[in-house]
Design a protein around this nucleic acid. Sequence first.
DNA 1: TCCTACTAGTTAGGATCCTAACTAACAGGA
DNA 2: TCCTGTTAGTTAGGATCCTAACTAGTAGGA
Lengths: 146, 146
Amino acid sequence: MFFLKDLPTGQMLRAYHDRFPEMETRAVEDALRLLRRASLLMRELEAYFAAHALSQTRFLVLIVIDREPDRDSLLPSEIADRLDVSRPVVTETIRTLEKAGLLGIRGGRDARTKQVFLTPRGRDVLAALLPGYFALIGAFMGREAP
Amino acid sequence: MFFLKDLPTGQMLRAYHDRFPEMETRAVEDALRLLRRASLLMRELEAYFAAHALSQTRFLVLIVIDREPDRDSLLPSEIADRLDVSRPVVTETIRTLEKAGLLGIRGGRDARTKQVFLTPRGRDVLAALLPGYFALIGAFMGREAP
DNA sequence: TCCTACTAGTTAGGATCCTAACTAACAGGA
DNA sequence: TCCTGTTAGTTAGGATCCTAACTAGTAGGA
């Protein structure tokens, strides 16, 4: 998350360019706009998920299982591969979602591993969530970038 | 932060579009690319700050004081106005930066408030940090979007 | 004067993330 | 067989963020 509300004014950027002439003003402006716009969208998404007792990360765990074309379960390690979070976060998120009844677990072929799958309830929750999720994104992307 | 490493394939998006026809495929694709690219840049920035005993938020507190054109101090409430973080985070960040000797504090006109300013050391640290910061952004923005 | 409402900032408690260290199970050669 | 190195996942401890509730100081009218 990028927390700067007001991007630097032209005056500010000129002042920094005077102090640091190697600064590529245009690249910095573009990067800050990118970060800010993405952060605003993330805030909206987090609020949407929170209103449905989920979070970005919990949602993404459900999605990566759901979107898999030819399988209906993933190993925790496969989930970790697909998400940019640490292993402990995957462990904890799976535990939370299992407690909530959205994920189920069955043994893998190896005693070290386990297959994680969406329960019918998990499927329902996701199906109920996605239209609002897509609508939120559509509305956000339709808005002018500030 | 947006944690999905691999954005959905065309096949996945078509499958979701079949289930949710009101989904604007293009907007969703663009939004996910925006989120992912911004998150990659944030990861790099966080790593850069961490290597210098700072964080995004600590850096931004220093910057919003430094960049102010006609003043050399801000009230905590003004810092909170400029950053998209909660008040307690501002309180804690200022305390940390003061302990580190990068910020100083003097009384405001009101006994409730206080002026927060950059110490000479704070100014030095920021000046030493900015060239690498600008270089990192320049390098990132120069790279092709994946 | 003094009571009430407001403003500024802090404290408390909980959620989520990280790295490092740990436990358990497997694989393959001596 | 059994030892060693690897793989999968969890636990422990710490950082950073949030909301809600609190303390202290100010302002303005009865």
